[in-house]
Computed example of a mutant assay.
Amino acid sequence: MTTFTIFLILIVIVSFLLVVVIMVQNPKGGGLSSSFGGGGTQQLGGVKKTTDFLDKSTWTLATLLLLLILLSNVDLMGNGTVQESKVNTDNVQLETPVNSSADEENNDQE
């Protein structure tokens, strides 16, 4: 298994976790954070702690995703995979006209 494949698997996993964490949050305060404690005065862990955890996990996963993408790009460039996909123009021979010097002499005389 190549390192790029490992990076790709990690990117997919982190992306899925980021989607899950974002979907759990509710911008109006009615999401998972308000379900702890049932809205009473006694709250398990507190709404503020849950909101802080979800906010920190969102930023952490987003940063990790960006870092994995950048590292996979560096790994891809380091392996030379991108350079190999370019068209090889080293063996291409340009066709030159056989009578090019004769044509130039004719043009100069005119």
Rank of each mutant, 00 (worst) to 15 (best):
residue 94 L to A: 11
residue 44 L to W: 05
residue 95 E to G: 08
residue 9 I to T: 12
residue 15 S to A: 11
residue 57 S to R: 07
residue 46 G to I: 09
residue 107 N to S: 05
residue 53 F to T: 09
residue 95 E to D: 06
residue 39 G to T: 09
residue 14 V to L: 04
residue 63 T to D: 04
residue 104 E to V: 08
residue 14 V to P: 01
residue 15 S to E: 05
residue 78 G to C: 05
residue 67 L to M: 13
residue 105 E to K: 12
residue 8 L to T: 13
residue 107 N to C: 08
residue 49 K to S: 09
residue 18 L to C: 02
residue 3 T to E: 12
residue 10 L to M: 11
residue 55 D to N: 15
residue 56 K to C: 05
residue 108 D to T: 09
residue 94 L to Y: 08
residue 66 L to F: 03
residue 56 K to M: 07
residue 60 T to V: 13
residue 107 N to K: 11
residue 96 T to A: 14
residue 64 L to M: 15
residue 63 T to Q: 07
residue 47 V to H: 03
residue 87 V to D: 00
residue 105 E to A: 06
residue 88 N to T: 03
residue 9 I to Q: 12
residue 70 L to E: 01
residue 108 D to E: 15
residue 76 L to N: 11
residue 26 N to C: 12
residue 63 T to P: 07
residue 52 D to P: 01
residue 95 E to Q: 11
residue 69 I to K: 01
residue 69 I to R: 01
residue 92 V to S: 04
residue 3 T to F: 03
residue 54 L to R: 05
residue 9 I to K: 14
residue 44 L to P: 03
residue 2 T to W: 03
residue 63 T to H: 08
residue 33 S to A: 14
residue 15 S to Y: 00
residue 96 T to D: 10
residue 33 S to R: 03
residue 100 S to Y: 13
residue 23 M to V: 14
residue 36 F to W: 11
residue 22 I to Y: 12
residue 22 I to F: 06
residue 96 T to H: 09
residue 47 V to R: 14
residue 76 L to S: 06
residue 40 G to E: 15
residue 49 K to Q: 04
residue 106 N to W: 06
residue 2 T to S: 13
residue 102 A to E: 09
residue 27 P to A: 10
residue 8 L to I: 01
residue 99 N to D: 15
residue 93 Q to W: 07
residue 27 P to R: 11
residue 104 E to I: 11
residue 63 T to A: 15
residue 100 S to N: 10
residue 97 P to L: 14
residue 12 V to D: 08
residue 69 I to D: 00
residue 103 D to I: 08
residue 90 D to C: 00
residue 39 G to C: 02
residue 7 F to K: 00
residue 104 E to Q: 02
residue 89 T to L: 02
residue 4 F to P: 00
residue 79 N to S: 07
residue 7 F to H: 02
residue 102 A to H: 00
residue 49 K to D: 09
residue 108 D to W: 10
residue 27 P to I: 12
residue 92 V to F: 15
residue 61 L to Q: 09
residue 11 I to A: 12
